[in-house]
């Protein structure tokens, strides 16, 4: 262990949303790939600027929906055709038109559950500990300050050089984050 403390990354604090957007673009141009931005409000184009690409969440939701549709229909088919067939006004046991509303509901239910649970899983939530909160002023990220973090996992990461680079972007402050 050459280092006493393990470093998670370097964090720069900005006062304006525009500065954060510019900084994120510059960091990407400088070749950094593992970076993340924190902002109290949504900023148009920021996710593209930090190199965010589409997630697998839509696929998870689609699978949830398909499972819900098949499951909902199968449940009704099983009840009305196999387990407890009843003659209702002379209709066929497999009276699919009347199965459609329930099938629709279970589709929406399962797709919505897949969306919420899938989102939590892909984000690694719930997460009782996250190193970014070691940054002393990080709580301002939910108020009026904008943060850009370059992570130590980045192949281009070097503690001193990265700090220099971030200072070059003229932030309010730069700090190291312990892991």
């Amino acid at each position: 262990m050459s280092q006493q403390k393990k470093i998670y990354g370097v964090m720069a604090e900005f006062e304006e949303a525009g500065e954060l957007l510019v900084a994120a673009h510059k960091a990407r141009e400088a070749g950094f790939t593992r970076l993340d931005a924190y902002s109290p409000l949504p900023i148009e184009g920021l996710s593209e600027a930090v190199g965010f690409e589409s997630t697998r969440l839509p696929l998870i939701v689609l699978i949830g929906g398909i499972v819900g549709a098949i499951g909902g229909f199968a449940l009704q088919y099983y009840i009305h055709v196999i387990e407890y067939p009843q003659n209702i006004g002379g209709r066929p046991f497999n009276s699919w038109p009347s199965f459609v509303p329930i099938t629709f509901e279970t589709t929406v239910l399962c797709a919505a559950l897949a969306a919420v649970l899938g989102m939590l899983a892909l984000n690694g939530l719930p997460s009782p500990y996250h190193p970014v909160f070691n940054a002393p002023r990080f709580k301002l990220a939910s108020r009026h300050r904008f943060f850009l973090c370059i992570k130590a996992r980045d192949p281009k990461f070097d503690l001193e050089e990265t700090k220099e680079f971030l200072l070059g972007l003229e932030p309010h402050e730069v700090c190291e984050i312990e892991d």
Binding site: G89, P97, S98, V100, P101
Partner: peptide, 12 residues
């Protein structure tokens, strides 16, 4: 379209 069909189909 389907609601109309379902109601008429159920009413028979």
């Amino acid at each position: 379209s389907f609601a109309q069909y379902l109601i008429i189909w159920s009413g028979n």
